[in-house]
Amino acid sequence: MWLPLIGLIVGLVVGFLLDWRVPQEYSSYLSIALLAGLDTIFGGIRSFLERTFNVRIFLSGFFFNTLFAAGLAFIGGFLGIDLYLAAIVAFGVRLFNNLAVIRRIVLSRWINQEE
């Protein structure tokens, strides 16, 4: 339970202390990777709350989604088409859907706990 929190704190501290910039030509790839990672994390939280979490599905989804989205961005860049926007929209919709389900689960448990 503490390991992800420690990793988040270490990552934030290192990120704020280092003056590291992502080159402009890689910013679309980074945005795709960030959204794919967030989608997978919130999907994992959702499946944990629904008691259906499987670490193999979580890890394979993380790497497959990230590589597929980066591949779309690469092919789109090669063809001169903004294909990464399709992945951004898809991951954005899934991210907000997962957040809505997580909110409903947490609120229903909180309300049922009060009764």
Score class of each variant (00 low, 15 high):
Ile75Asp: 02
Leu12His: 06
Gln113Asn: 11
Ile45Tyr: 13
Ile102Asn: 03
Gln113Met: 11
Leu49Gly: 12
Phe68Tyr: 07
Gly44His: 05
Leu8Met: 14
Tyr84Ile: 04
Met1Gln: 12
Thr40Leu: 06
Pro4Gly: 06
Asn112Gln: 09
Arg56Trp: 03
Met1Lys: 11
Gly77Thr: 12
Phe78Thr: 02
Gly77Ile: 02
Ile81Val: 15
Ala86Lys: 05
Leu38Asn: 01
Trp20Ser: 04
Val14Met: 13
Leu72Arg: 05
Leu79Ile: 11
Ala90His: 08
Thr52Gln: 11
Met1Val: 06
Ile41Ala: 15
Tyr29Val: 10
Thr40Glu: 06
Tyr29Phe: 10
Leu12Met: 14
Phe42Leu: 09
Pro23Tyr: 10
Leu18Phe: 07
Ala70Phe: 07
Phe64Gln: 08
Arg46Asp: 13
Leu30Met: 04
Gly11Arg: 01
Leu107Trp: 08
Phe42His: 11
Leu30Thr: 02
Thr52Asn: 09
Trp110Cys: 05
Gly71Leu: 14
Asp82Thr: 10
Ala33Pro: 00
Val55Ser: 12
Asn112Glu: 14
Phe96Ser: 07
Gly44Tyr: 03
Trp2Met: 02
Leu83Ala: 10
Arg21Asn: 13
Thr40Trp: 13
Leu35Tyr: 03
Gly15Asn: 08
Tyr84Thr: 04
Ile111Ser: 01
Gln24Met: 03
Arg56Ile: 02
Pro23Glu: 10
Thr52Leu: 15
Val89Gln: 02
Gly11Ile: 00
Ala90Glu: 07
Ile105Tyr: 04
Ile45Gln: 06
Leu38Thr: 03
Val55Arg: 06
Phe96Val: 14
Asn97Trp: 08
Leu99Met: 03
Ile6Met: 04
Asn112Trp: 09
Gly7Leu: 10
Tyr84Glu: 14
Ser60Gly: 15
Asp19Pro: 00
Leu38Ala: 13
Ile88Lys: 03
Ala33Leu: 06
Asn54Thr: 04
Gly7Glu: 01
Phe42Ile: 11
Gly44Asn: 05
Phe63Glu: 14
Ser27Ala: 06
Val89Arg: 04
Phe68Asp: 02
Pro23Gln: 09
Leu72Asp: 10
Phe62Asn: 04
Phe64Cys: 06
Glu50Trp: 08
Ile41His: 09
Ile75Gly: 14
Arg94Gln: 11
Phe48Lys: 03
Leu35Cys: 13
Ala90Arg: 11
Gln113Trp: 09
Val22Gly: 12
Ala70Gln: 14
Gly37Pro: 02
Arg56Asp: 09
Ser108Val: 00
Phe42Pro: 02
Ile111Val: 01
Ala73Pro: 15
Leu30Glu: 00
Val106Phe: 00
Arg109Leu: 07
Leu38Glu: 12
Leu3Pro: 14
Asn97Thr: 04
Ile45Glu: 11
Phe16Tyr: 14
Gly15Met: 09
Leu38Gln: 00
Leu8Cys: 08
Phe68Asn: 01
Phe58Pro: 07
Leu79His: 00
Arg94Tyr: 08
Val101Trp: 03
Gly76Asp: 08
Leu8Ile: 09
Arg51Phe: 11
Phe91Ile: 02
Val13Ile: 09
Arg21Phe: 04
Val101Met: 05
Ser31Leu: 06
Val10Asn: 00
Pro4Trp: 02
Trp2Tyr: 07
Phe91His: 05
Arg104Tyr: 05
Asp82Asn: 05
Met1Pro: 15
Gly37Arg: 01
Phe91Ala: 00
Ser28Asn: 15
Leu99Tyr: 10
Val10Gln: 03
Ile57Met: 12
Gly71Lys: 04
Ser27Trp: 06
Ala69Pro: 13
Val22Asn: 06
